[in-house]
Simulated scan of single mutants.
Amino acid sequence: MRILMVALAATMLAGCAGSVMDNARTQTPNKVLTSNKPEKIVAQCVQFAWQDESVFGVDAGAYLQPGKKGGSTVYTRSAESFVDVSTDASGTVLNYFAQKDDFVAKRRLAALATCL
């Protein structure tokens, strides 16, 4: 029963976050970054960096899922911040989106930059 509740909560979270992310993707990303590292390594690094409770406190949740058009997406609760990580001819491309341009969003961007 507990597993079912966790699965249901994760599905609901992904559904809510999905519509927010889809809307954000119609806009220009807050920041576009590139890396020479493989896409999966960068995405896992970002997820790990965003889960650092010493930096983000109780808001340190980060989730990794397959990207909408390939690659990976790392996102926070309610998709307050998320990054689409994909591969193209120049290497790994990271499109960073944030609902608000506040202190937390800047911290998430800085943590993301450590993974490049």
Rank of each mutant, 00 (worst) to 15 (best):
M1P: 08
R2I: 08
L4C: 01
A7G: 02
L8H: 00
T11I: 13
T11H: 03
T11L: 15
T11K: 00
T11E: 08
L13C: 02
A14E: 08
A14R: 14
A17C: 10
G18E: 13
G18V: 02
S19N: 06
S19Y: 06
S19P: 01
V20I: 15
V20Y: 00
A24R: 00
A24Y: 02
A24N: 02
R25W: 09
T26N: 08
Q27M: 15
P29T: 03
V32H: 03
V32C: 12
V32M: 15
L33K: 04
L33H: 05
N36D: 14
K37F: 09
P38E: 13
P38T: 01
E39D: 09
K40V: 12
K40M: 14
K40E: 15
I41G: 08
I41L: 15
V42K: 01
V42W: 10
C45S: 06
C45V: 08
V46R: 00
Q47Y: 01
Q51L: 12
D52V: 06
D52N: 11
E53K: 13
S54H: 11
F56L: 12
F56R: 04
F56Y: 11
A60C: 11
A60Q: 05
A60M: 06
G61W: 02
G61H: 02
G61T: 06
A62L: 12
Y63K: 13
P66S: 11
P66T: 06
P66K: 14
G67F: 03
G67E: 04
K69I: 09
K69M: 05
K69Q: 12
G71L: 10
G71S: 01
G71P: 07
T73S: 06
T73W: 01
Y75F: 07
T76D: 05
T76V: 14
R77Y: 08
A79E: 03
S81Y: 00
V83C: 05
D84F: 02
V85D: 11
V85Q: 03
S86D: 06
S86H: 05
S86W: 00
S90H: 08
G91M: 12
T92M: 12
V93A: 11
V93Q: 15
Y96P: 02
Y96S: 03
Y96V: 11
Q99M: 09
K100D: 07
D102E: 02
F103R: 11
V104Q: 09
V104K: 13
A105D: 03
A105H: 05
R107K: 14
L109Y: 01
L109H: 01
L109N: 01
A110K: 04
L112T: 13
L112V: 09
A113E: 13
C115V: 06
